[in-house]
Design a protein around this nucleic acid. Structure first.
Length: 1039
RNA sequence: GGGCGCUUAGCUCAGUUGGCUAGAGCGUCGCUUUUACACAGCGAAUGUCACAGGUUCGAGUCCUGUAGCGCCCA
């Protein structure tokens, strides 16, 4: 019959091979229909909770997401099988700047701008983008097998989350933890918005150091300042020097006439100034070498100068506009005739023009190349501009926030004396791997206030209404200190709003009213009274920081029918699994907010930081390099379980993981290693055009080629998708699991009995002990978030123990031994369960057949079965199942089998050839212990005493220091080959003997090492010596 | 500049209180298409554990220093 043999069902009840595509969506459907991923708030079981780090709706999930979600799902499924009530909360993040930017970029392709639309129209466009990608993301999670409670899927801007954001902002505002201030922010002149410190990436730039001469006002000469930013000199309000500088005394009290502008500015003395090398500067400081000892001070355009300005009470003169161009409309009032020429120039043009002015006027002393780090916007890529503007800040440096976060750390992970007290939540957060606790701690110790306003349209609009103070009496009665916002009592506060006032830099007074959600109707009254709602939206991380609260309906879960009791039950969560760079952006802020809003409760008990996935060259995967992998492509080429298993296997806790990129030939479907080249940026990338491995005339475009625009995919030259042969491991495991299950099931027709392991032969006791050991190993690995070890526990049990030894050894016996069938079926059931958290689809597909053996049991191995594997129990092995004696004995069996196989392999004997073993005393004993297993596994069909006559072609071997012979291996002896084999063995034994002798001749070793270690060495020496003698004798006989 | 890691077989990585004649997977080389699996089985080869010191009876493992790589924060 010519049938599709792969789909043919055999005696096991399973198809002949596992094809992921034929099972995955069916399994997903079964899980969904059963509702088994739903949290059970009413259950008595202990909850196990995770909040998914909500992926940005900017794009589909990449391999890093696949990794993190695989790890979380493995934990979730493991916990579920162990009877926990699992809530894995899914959702997505609106990702303010990032999403707005992708939509604006798409509009730009159509020649349109954001400002061509009204705010509402534009937001609707972004919303459409969000809907599309949210759907894709959720589909990807389902395709990967993630067991999220999808009915509870949240979005950071949905009404439930928005209510939390609104309340969080209101409370912080009311409590004085949110304030407005004119500060230097990281301004992105391209997107025209402020960005947070951690959205700034430092990049080394090949710039220049310019040396500008500034004349002293008394005409006594000039001093030279060194600067990398000459264009900001228009805003200089002082020149600073180090008080220790030898020239300080003679310059003290003098003034400078600022060139171009003509402004008279003081010379101030400040320790911050780096002294010139020639004036006693520190030779180990690279800056001393380029420094002149004089620093131009521009408080409005440099954070360090801002600090100097504060110390010396200097004026802030802002000479730049929001687009980064020189402007006289943002605080620069003393524009001279000469300076007017520079107004309106971009910062790049202004730099050239200023430098040129100094050159022309003989005031440019020098210029030299200077490599230095410049902050760039993570989003738009342009250099950020420290810029003065009114922004909203959360005072995270307040002890109620920062202090609470530090106190949350587990005391033994805190460096120094832990501040944790006995309050709720103190000392409860633990990091895995522990080294990341330091990152968390250091971040808080050097924290600055968090700028939360963004000049965007996409996001949570700031719920504050502002106007110039109008109520004179109220203003008079309020004691305004500096620029601090002060709470006032008013008709608005009487309604329940928070009303605060502050004095602006220019002396005018501003009043702000923040409305909680339930006072939304007051907004109209505020507007009528001349208030205007703030135009800005909140930093994305503000809503993310509330994720563990807002997704559970905080502050009013009673308003949402399905959230009753959820907050109390599922917050804190069990573990947060996330990426390294998120510790500062997210972990910290969730900790501060959760503790602040929930009476000290921490948002999670454990924080697991997963590794970063890199390409084969150790580079981060990125769209522009085209070196990313789409999980959907891997699922297509290898299957979801292969993807998952491989990712688990790669996740060790010491190193980031490398996944080298391969390509799929779109014509043949074949995977091949592409040709790489060095991109102009210095990165290694796949060459834009690749040749087909099958037919070199056929070409295709790499993802780098398409991303860089160096090649355009077409019908003749299609785009080649990325994959990686790294995922072969996972695919192979799925296949092995499938085939092993089929074989085991074929050999276990109807075992319905309970077996007492102690009545079973060595082989059976051994495999059950191995199952128990693997379960212990797997449980411990997951408890410590060592995912690679979890994967290895399953792999070793399945492949090495169950397939290579147990199934092979049981082949001749199982068919006629119901008890052994029971052991086989139960071991298989345990293995399939063990693999389920990592490889849910293939195991669930197997379960339809495996569960039919639920009637058999092994005493000491507890397993409960349900219709679905996902809800069946995790196997529990009692201590009685661990049989150290059986393991030790079986290790001897394995050693003997391997010794025989070694000789067979070396002599290239056909595996089918049956041979005779002339066994030593120990070997005979092991053969007897094994009850036929040695013969089965080593192809021996007769065991004779060592004294038995042997043919001239027999080969010598040793076992446990005793000589044995194998006879009947070959028809004619190749003396040369045999001599080579024995000579090699001889050298090996000699090396061993001298090694052990050396150890034992060391008096210190014998005297100080533990007796057991010394005894072991002595035994190994005795065996090695005996074997050496045996090999020597064999060699002699050969000659 | 500060912090955190990493450097072990051709490649990717394990190696949990120091006991190791250093392991796995892939790749390589033999033998085998044996009725679970060639996405397989059996066997083999391959390492001055980055380098230099130190502690110790004993160091891949602990300490110090050097070099290179990576990430985070300035």
């Amino acid at each position: 019959m010519i049938a599709n043999s792969a789909t043919e069902i055999d005696a096991s009840g399973l198809a002949k091979s596992y094809r992921p595509g034929e099972h995955e969506s069916a399994m997903s459907a079964r899980w969904r229909e059963s509702g088994c991923f739903k949290a059970r708030p009413d259950s008595k079981s202990e909850p196990f909770t995770m909040f998914i780090p909500p992926p940005n709706v900017t794009a589909a999930l990449h391999l890093g997401h696949a990794l993190n979600n695989t790890l979380q799902d493995t934990l979730a499924r493991h916990a579920r099988m162990r009877g926990r009530d699992v809530l894995w909360m899914p959702g997505t993040d609106h990702a303010g700047i990032a999403t707005q930017t992708v939509v604006e970029r798409r509009l730009a392709l159509q020649g349109k701008k954001r400002t061509d639309f009204t705010r509402d129209e534009f937001v609707a466009q972004v919303q459409a983008w969000k809907d599309e990608y949210e759907r894709v993301i959720l589909e990807q999670l389902v395709a990967m097998g993630c067991s999220c409670d999808f009915d509870r899927t949240r979005f950071t801007m949905d009404p439930v989350c928005a209510a939390g954001v609104r309340e969080g902002f209101f409370r912080l505002f009311k409590d004085g933890l949110i304030e407005r201030g004119r500060r230097l922010v990281n301004w992105d002149p391209k997107t025209k918005t402020a960005i947070a410190d951690d959205e700034v990436v430092m990049r080394d730039v090949d710039g220049k150091m310019w040396y500008l001469k500034y004349p002293l006002s008394d005409g006594s000469g000039t001093i030279t300042v060194a600067t990398t930013r000459p264009e900001t000199m228009l805003g200089d309000t002082a020149v600073a020097m180090n008080p220790k500088d030898p020239r300080a005394a003679s310059l003290r009290g003098k003034k400078i006439i600022l060139p171009i502008v003509g402004r008279e500015i003081p010379i101030v003395e400040d320790d911050y100034v780096v002294m010139a090398l020639s004036m006693g500067g520190d030779a180990s400081d690279a800056k001393a070498e380029v420094a002149t000892g004089f620093l131009k001070v521009t408080p409005a355009h440099d954070p360090n100068d801002f600090d100097i300005g504060r110390r010396h009470n200097l004026a802030l003169i802002n000479v730049l506009g929001p687009d980064g161009a020189i402007s006289d409309r943002h605080g620069w009032n003393d524009v001279s005739e000469q300076a007017k020429a520079f107004v309106g120039l971009s910062r790049e043009d202004a730099r050239k023009a200023i430098v040129n002015w100094f050159k022309v006027n003989g005031l440019l002393e020098n210029e030299r190349p200077w490599k230095h780090a410049v902050g760039h916007s993570d989003r738009s890529g342009v250099a950020i501009e420290p810029w003065l503007s009114d922004q909203w800040f959360v005072r995270v440096t307040d002890q109620r926030l920062r202090g609470a976060a530090l106190k949350a750390m587990a005391p033994d992970q805190f460096e120094g004396v832990s501040p944790a007290g006995k309050a709720v939540g103190d000392g409860e957060i633990r990091f895995f791997p522990p080294r990341y606790a330091k990152t968390f701690q250091h971040w808080h110790e050097s924290l600055r206030d968090w700028c939360i306003s963004r000049q965007l349209w996409w996001g949570h609009r700031i719920p504050v209404w502002t106007r110039d103070a109008k109520d004179e009496a109220l203003t008079q009665s309020t004691s305004l200190r500096g620029s601090e916002m002060v709470a006032v009592n008013s008709k608005w506060s009487a309604l329940g709003a928070a009303h605060r006032m502050r004095k602006r830099d220019d002396g005018s007074v501003e009043e702000s009213v923040c409305l909680p959600l339930d006072l939304e109707h007051v907004a109209a009254q505020l507007v009528a009274a001349g208030f205007e709602q703030d135009q800005d939206v909140l930093d994305t991380w503000f809503s993310s920081a509330l994720w563990p609260l807002s997704t559970l309906g905080w502050p009013h879960p009673e308003k949402f029918p399905d959230m009753k009791g959820m907050l109390e039950r599922y917050n804190p969560s069990s573990v947060l699994s996330t990426a390294r760079d998120i510790i500062t952006l997210w972990v910290s802020r969730m900790t501060m907010f959760n503790r602040y809003f929930l009476g000290g409760k921490v948002p999670f008990k454990h924080v697991y930081i997963h590794p970063v996935i890199q390409d084969g060259f150790g580079q981060r995967m990125s769209k522009s390099l085209g070196n990313g992998l789409d999980p959907r492509d891997v699922i297509h080429s290898h299957g979801a379980d292969a993807l998952r298993f491989t990712l688990l296997d790669l996740t060790t806790d010491t190193q980031d993981v490398r996944v080298q990129i391969d390509m799929i030939d779109p014509q043949s479907g074949e995977t091949f290693e592409p040709e790489f080249m060095r991109a102009p940026s210095g990165h290694m990338v796949a060459a834009p055009i690749q040749k087909s491995p099958k037919s070199p005339t056929q070409t295709m475009v790499s993802t780098y080629g398409a991303a860089s625009g160096l090649a355009t995919p077409s019908a003749a030259q299609p785009l080649a998708r990325n994959t990686s042969s790294r995922f072969d491991v996972g695919r192979n495991v799925a296949t092995k699991l499938w085939n092993a299950s089929r074989f085991a099931l074929m050999n276990t027709p109807q075992p319905a009995l309970e077996v007492d392991p102690s009545t079973r032969p060595l082989l059976d006791r051994w495999i059950l002990s191995r199952v128990a050991g693997a379960l212990t190993r797997a449980d411990r690995a997951l408890a410590e978030y060592r995912f690679s070890d979890f994967a290895a526990a399953g792999y070793d049990l399945l492949w090495r123990d169950f397939c290579d030894w147990f199934l092979e050894a049981a082949k001749p016996t199982a068919k006629n031994d119901p008890a052994q069938q029971c052991v086989m079926a139960c071991s298989l059931s345990a293995i399939v369960r063990l693999f389920h958290p990592g490889m849910p689809h293939v195991t669930e597909a197997l379960w339809s057949a495996v569960k039919n053996h639920a009637a058999c049991a092994v005493r000491g191995l507890d397993m409960k079965s349900t219709d679905l594997l996902a809800t069946s129990s995790w196997p529990v092995a009692h201590a009685s199942l661990i049989d150290t004696k059986a393991e030790a004995e079986f290790a001897r069996v394995q050693a003997l089998v391997e010794a025989i196989r070694n000789v067979r392999g070396e002599r290239q004997v056909n595996p089918k050839k049956r041979i005779k073993l002339l066994a030593s005393a120990n070997a005979s004993q092991v053969v007897a212990l094994a009850g036929g297993v040695v013969e089965t596994l080593s192809g021996v069909d007769g065991v004779l005493p060592i004294t038995h006559a042997r043919s001239p072609t027999a080969a010598a071997m040793t076992f446990e220091g005793q000589e044995c012979w194998l006879d009947g291996l070959v028809d004619a002896l190749d003396i040369g080959a045999e001599r080579a084999r024995l000579t090699k063995l001889l050298a090996e034994r000699q090396r061993a003997v001298s090694g052990y002798k050396g150890k034992l001749s060391n008096a210190g070793y014998v005297a100080k090492a533990p007796p057991q270690v010394v005894q072991d060495t002595q035994k190994m020496l005795r065996d090695a010596e005996a074997e050496l003698i045996a090999v020597e004798r064999s060699l002699k006989e050969l000659a």
